[in-house]
C-alpha cells in the first residue's frame, strides 16, 4: 500500500522518466537525423520538467511580492529553465542547420545511407 502511494505521489517523476527514456530511445534507435533531433528535444524537455516540478509548492502562488500571500513557488528553477530552453533552442537550430547542410552535401539525411555511401568511396 505504502509502495503504491509512493509511486502515485511521485507521478511527476514517472512522467519525466518516461519522456527522458523515450527521448533517448529515439536518439539511439532512429537513423533519420531530424527524428534524432526530435528525440533529443524530448530528452531535454524532460529535464525542464525535472527542474520545474519540485519548484511548485502546494498552495503557493507565482513569485510576485504581494502582502496577501506568504507562500510562493520557487522562482529560481523557472529562471534556470528559461536559460535552458534558450540553450535547447540554439542546439536544435544548429542541429537542424547541420542537417540541411548534410542533406546538401550527401543528398540524404538517413544515417545508414550516408555511411553506406561513405564505405563505397
Amino acid at each position: 500500500m505504502d509502495l503504491l502511494q509512493t509511486i502515485v505521489a511521485h507521478y511527476n517523476h514517472w512522467i519525466i522518466i518516461f519522456l527522458m527514456v523515450s527521448g533517448l530511445y529515439i536518439v539511439v534507435a532512429r537513423g533519420n537525423m531530424i527524428k534524432k533531433l526530435v528525440g533529443l528535444g524530448l530528452f531535454q524537455t524532460s529535464v525542464y520538467l525535472l527542474y520545474l516540478s519540485p519548484g511548485k509548492i502546494l498552495g503557493g502562488t507565482p513569485p510576485i511580492l504581494s502582502p496577501q500571500f506568504s507562500v510562493y513557488s520557487n522562482p529560481l528553477p523557472h529562471v534556470l529553465i528559461l536559460t535552458a530552453i534558450v540553450v535547447g533552442v540554439a542546439t536544435l537550430a544548429l542541429g537542424l542547420a547541420l542537417v540541411v547542410r548534410i542533406n546538401e552535401a550527401f543528398g540524404t539525411i538517413e544515417e545508414d545511407e550516408i555511411f553506406a555511401g561513405e564505405e563505397d568511396e
Binding site: L24, V27, M33, K36, L40, T91, G95, V99, I102
Partner: peptide, 10 residues
C-alpha cells in the same frame, strides 16, 4: 559535427 552535437547534448 552532427554526431558530436547529439552526443555532446546528451
Amino acid at each position: 559535427a552532427y554526431q558530436y552535437l547529439i552526443m555532446g547534448t546528451i
